[in-house]
Computed example of a mutant assay.
Amino acid sequence: MDTLLAPDARLARRVLRAVPTMLLWAAFAVAAFLLWPTNLGGCTTLTIVTGQSMEPTFHTGDLVVTRCTSPSVGDVIVYQPHELDGPRIIHRVIGGDASGWEIQGDNNDWVDPFSPTGDEVLGVQWFSVPKVGLAVQAITSPWIWASLIVLAIAILVWPRDDDEDDEGADETPAAAGPPEAVPDLEPAAPGETS
């Protein structure tokens, strides 16, 4: 016996089917807001640690995620001094204020020669993920990409075993068609037409 669903039940069912999709989109929007990089107008900076100046806190290959906020003494910050024109430095604030922070690496005996101001500080450490940077460096390595391209070309060009089996099949006679006219080799008698 078929029973018809009430209109309210259909609506409730449709809403329940849409909830997981809406939650997924909401989670995506929150993640995009929180992880949107500063070079695209966001407030997050991703930095891969190189060197030993921040050991034992961070090691080479660790990924440090920073958010733009006002640092205080004891915070780990990422800054980009104007004097160096490009590289980022990740060290700890040991003193100063927004007009010029005193910075030092956890594993260094000296204070950094730079006193980054508020506009040079890219962010304060939010969280870190150990060794993720090593995978990112491997993926972006030109040697890895060149090796993958050579491997892909070799796979495409290398003959397969199936090709050798098919060679015998190519030697079959051509498809039967109308027979060709065979020329008459006997000379025609005078007065006969061919």
Results as ranks from 00 to 15, higher is better:
5 L>T: 00
5 L>W: 06
6 A>L: 10
8 D>C: 00
15 V>L: 11
17 R>P: 07
21 T>R: 05
22 M>D: 01
23 L>G: 08
23 L>Q: 03
25 W>R: 10
27 A>S: 12
29 A>S: 05
29 A>M: 08
31 A>P: 05
33 F>E: 04
37 P>A: 07
38 T>Q: 11
38 T>M: 08
41 G>L: 00
42 G>D: 01
44 T>L: 09
44 T>I: 00
49 V>I: 15
49 V>L: 06
51 G>F: 07
51 G>L: 05
52 Q>R: 14
53 S>C: 05
54 M>K: 01
57 T>H: 04
66 T>Y: 06
67 R>S: 13
68 C>G: 14
68 C>M: 14
68 C>Q: 15
70 S>T: 15
75 D>S: 04
77 I>Q: 06
77 I>T: 01
79 Y>Q: 01
80 Q>G: 07
84 L>Y: 04
85 D>H: 12
85 D>L: 11
88 R>M: 12
88 R>H: 11
88 R>L: 15
89 I>K: 07
91 H>C: 08
91 H>V: 06
92 R>W: 06
96 G>Y: 06
97 D>K: 02
97 D>I: 01
98 A>I: 07
99 S>G: 14
100 G>Q: 08
102 E>D: 13
103 I>Q: 08
104 Q>F: 02
105 G>S: 08
106 D>Y: 07
108 N>P: 03
108 N>R: 00
109 D>Q: 10
109 D>L: 06
109 D>E: 12
112 D>L: 05
114 F>Q: 09
116 P>S: 05
116 P>Y: 08
121 V>Q: 05
122 L>F: 08
123 G>A: 09
128 S>F: 11
132 V>I: 02
135 A>P: 02
139 I>H: 03
139 I>F: 15
139 I>E: 10
140 T>E: 14
141 S>E: 00
142 P>V: 07
143 W>T: 10
144 I>W: 09
146 A>R: 11
147 S>W: 02
148 L>D: 06
149 I>V: 15
151 L>A: 15
151 L>C: 14
152 A>F: 14
153 I>Y: 07
155 I>H: 13
156 L>D: 06
157 V>K: 05
161 D>A: 15
161 D>P: 05
164 E>Q: 12
164 E>V: 15
165 D>S: 13
166 D>K: 11
168 G>N: 14
169 A>S: 09
170 D>T: 13
170 D>I: 11
174 A>V: 09
175 A>H: 07
176 A>M: 05
179 P>L: 10
180 E>A: 15
185 L>Q: 04
186 E>Q: 07
188 A>W: 10
192 E>M: 13
193 T>S: 12
194 S>V: 13
